[in-house]
Design a protein around this nucleic acid. Structure first.
Lengths: 235, 235
DNA sequence: GGCTTAATTAACTGATCAGTTAATAGCGCG
DNA sequence: CGCGCTATTAACTGATCAGTTAATTAAGCC
């Protein structure tokens, strides 16, 4: 009773609490699975406030999606100029954000071909990403003739999959995809992969000097892999 | 009334009809979203029969998952021995099966860390897959030092992602991931990618002969990509 | 044909859940 | 202090849905 005497109204704070709770609940259960009662309970507000602040449950869901998409929009722009670095960047910046990945996944599995949220913006963003790949291709980092939209799709695949299918990661690897060790390992692997796809010109030159020893090229390739140990990038 | 006079009982056929309908409904909506009324309606049987044949909704769901997993279990074994071929095979054999991919996705997003269906079998299967990659590694097709579980995870990523996130494919590529053109393109790309990761030894040899012309190696790489036009593999 | 069993139909039930209605009370202003 | 507005609480409502109960009837056997 004493705690109730001090109820303080603050619509903005109520809104923020609802948004935070809704992110957690929608990420965990999707639109249909999340309960307005549960969101309200998590936010410690009365259920009626959800309707007061946001309208229908659907409207709240859209707002959550919109915000998350906007939050991650800078990922493409802030990616490094080298392919391997960009790949690791997309993974570390977006592929490890569980709420982001899950919301994308709920969107995917619930959408059934319907129009998406913020379509135009996202389309523009993805075009920018492909354009950046085109620059790399012109420089010779990415071979001519490679389908750049498929390459970009593959980057997203590699970056997002661990959190998209965590049960498979557990079955294959025996580790949680959220485990920092896994993430470190994944980032390292992606750098290797990115480098392998990218830097064939230099690789060729170094190997050609040793072509009398067929074993040596393989060893050199391993050495090429060593620079991926860039500590400090993953705390 | 005349049609009803000829009602014929056949428990096996009823079971099969329910299974087919349940696959469609669970794939489309997941466990929680699928309605027993809808499954019964699609199967053209009385709702009561679902309980009669399979018990609770959950039991039917498990049966559907089990069957699909079993159906796709041969994918690893039947994969070709070359890495690029295996990658394309996994895509074409499993990555284009929309029901399979979606059921895996529903499993993923609904599971919340719980124990999976047929865990032991699947684990064994995945171990076999990694073991096959190890053979390739010993042969020198895959460089030493590469994390093979990460490589296998990446193969699944690349193969399944288009159907896992169809909305992103539509946004990025402007095509449905179920469009045969997309699938052809994807398979071709994956072969290129697989080859690029695998056959550096041969690539090196060919390129080294032309090292006086720095542009030419890139052209040769494109030529290396040509063999991926294997018609007939996708109707 | 009669009887028994099981496959099938139809209706019912209690719980859940988004949204709605009614009431209360905090806050700022005059 | 009173008033008006709005932020907040509490309870209600009608629709949905998995599962259950009751009844019917097809099929096989004697």
């Amino acid at each position: 009773m004493t705690g109730r005497r001090t109820l303080v109204r603050n619509l903005n704070r109520t809104r923020e609490k609802i948004l935070a709770a809704a992110l957690a609940e929608f990420s965990a259960r999707g639109f249909a699975g999340a309960r307005v009662d549960a969101i309200a309970g998590r936010a410690r507000v009365n259920k009626r406030m959800l309707y007061y602040c946001f309208g229908a449950k659907q409207d709240l869901y859209r707002e959550i999606l919109r915000r998350k998409i906007a939050e991650r929009a800078g990922l493409i722009e802030s990616a490094p100029d080298d392919f391997a670095g960009a790949l690791a960047h997309i993974y570390l910046g977006g592929g490890t954000d569980i709420d982001f990945v899950r919301l994308m996944e709920w969107e995917a599995i619930d959408s059934g071909g319907k129009k998406c949220i913020a379509e135009a913006e996202r389309r523009a963003l993805f075009e920018k990403a492909v354009a950046r790949l085109r620059v790399l291709q012109r420089r010779g980092s990415i071979p001519h003739g490679v389908n750049l939209t498929q390459l970009f799709i593959s980057m997203l695949s590699l970056a997002m999959f661990p959190l998209v299918m965590p049960q498979l990661i557990r079955l294959i690897h025996g580790m949680e995809p959220t485990d920092p060790r896994f993430m470190r390992q994944r980032a390292k692997f992606l750098r290797w992969l990115g480098d392998r796809l990218e830097k064939t010109t230099e690789t060729v030159r170094i190997k050609s000097r040793r072509r009398r020893n067929p074993v040596a090229p393989s060893q050199t390739a391993v050495h090429r892999g060593r620079p991926f140990k860039k500590p400090g990038q993953l705390a």
